[in-house]
Design a protein around this nucleic acid. Structure first.
Length: 366
DNA sequence: TAGGCCATCTGGTCCT
DNA sequence: AGGACCAGATGGCCTA
């Protein structure tokens, strides 16, 4: 079959032209995978005239395109034009297919190979653009890249969130902001984004970017006013709705710099433009304290995969605070998975790259 | 092992 | 005619 012949490894374009778009873990695999594919297909060469991929029209159009071939004019390809024997297939019209001569096969092969190379390049460009997009959305990790679809969703949410900020002219609270960003995202991505924002909040407080660039954020970037949502651990009497704010703020489990959302769509957010499904319930705990997780015991770490890093209001963390995990409902109720935690170390927000962040920063300065 | 994600190949269609 | 774009198919890798 022609499509098999097209995949001669010697004809394949040099994939090493594109080392950048392949992530660290994938570069070798990509080459190996391609080699394997080539090997596999070459091994199928003897399956000539059998289309194992897809519909079955295969290289017909290319074959038909070889009109300039002048030899063997009446010698048609039996498979293509021998419709008499195929009762259920409609009779093909148009020019009769010519028999594949070696020269024609070679031309088709070259053309197909060139088309494949172009398609690869096109997809690489697309992936490169997607990588650039990943770098300007709020959550960026070198080690755990957002998937393509999640990147696009997050970008859309981010644009929406920024436009809402501009439109309302108000500082957003962390809940609605995170909600907006995480609309329609998968639970792991939601956790990733929330964690990233959490880290970012810490950076805001310490006025230090991870890359060393300094910027100013005198206060938590989000207003921490009353939230309509309640984390499970807020069930303690001090944290009940209606309890006075003072006691809530001073309760060891209830940092004043804490935003909690346990599920459902925010009533503050009612954009008709949102078509994505609601994010799974989550519990976002804004962390605006300095790092404390280093002091957390391994046991506690296990129990609080993605727990709130408490502000300095209380030095102790009671073991009953399991609800603090980035609550994941349903099948993933076990909390944040470790693979979603580790990348936060190299996760950062690109304040210096995205104009939107400058806008936000300027906004928060006022 | 199923499902998600991805890269690649492939053929069809449209455009220049 | 050739290139760009698209969608389907396929297989590999990874993770729960």
């Amino acid at each position: 079959m022609l499509t098999r012949l097209f995949n001669d490894p010697s004809l394949l374009p040099d994939m090493q032209k594109f080392p950048a778009w392949v992530d660290d873990s994938g570069s070798e695999d990509s080459k190996t995978k391609e080699d394997e594919q080539d090997h596999c297909r070459l091994g199928d060469e003897d399956l000539d005239e059998v289309d194992v991929k897809g519909g079955g029209s295969r290289a017909q159009s290319e074959i038909a395109g070889e009109e300039e071939e002048d030899e063997e004019e009446e010698d048609v390809d039996e498979d293509d034009c021998g419709d008499e024997g195929e009762g259920d297939r409609p009779k093909k019209r148009g020019p009769k297919k010519r028999k594949m001569t070696p020269a024609r096969i070679e031309r088709s092969k070259v053309r197909r190979q060139k088309a494949n190379a172009r398609e690869r390049t096109r997809m690489h460009d697309l992936n490169s653009a997607l990588d650039n997009l990943r770098k300007v959305v709020p959550c960026y990790s070198k080690t755990q890249k957002l998937s393509k679809i999640e990147t696009l969703r997050l970008a859309k949410n981010y644009i929406w969130a920024l436009s809402e900020i501009l439109r309302n002219g108000k500082r957003p609270d962390v809940v609605s902001y995170v909600q907006t960003l995480c609309k329609g995202l998968s639970q792991p991505t939601t956790n990733l984004v929330a964690g990233c924002l959490q880290l970012n909040s810490r950076n805001f407080l310490t006025e230090q970017c991870q890359d060393g660039a300094r910027f100013h954020m005198p206060n938590p970037p989000f207003s921490m006013h009353a939230y309509p949502y309640q984390c499970s651990r807020l069930s303690s009497p001090q944290c009940q709705p209606g309890s006075n704010t003072h006691s809530l703020r001073n309760h060891p489990y209830c940092s004043p710099y804490e935003a909690v959302y346990t599920g459902g769509a925010s009533p503050e957010y009612n954009s008709p433009d949102y078509e994505g499904q609601h994010s799974p319930p989550m519990c976002v705990n804004g962390n605006f304290s300095l790092r404390q997780q280093e002091s957390v015991s391994p046991d506690a770490e296990r129990g609080y995969h993605y727990s709130m890093h408490y502000s300095g209001l209380s030095g102790s963390r009671p073991p009953a605070a399991h609800g603090l995990t980035y609550s994941t409902s349903g099948a993933r109720s076990g909390g944040m998975h470790s693979e979603n935690v580790a990348p936060f170390h190299d996760m950062h927000v690109h304040h210096d790259r995205a104009p939107a962040y400058e806008e936000l920063n300027a906004f928060f300065h006022n």
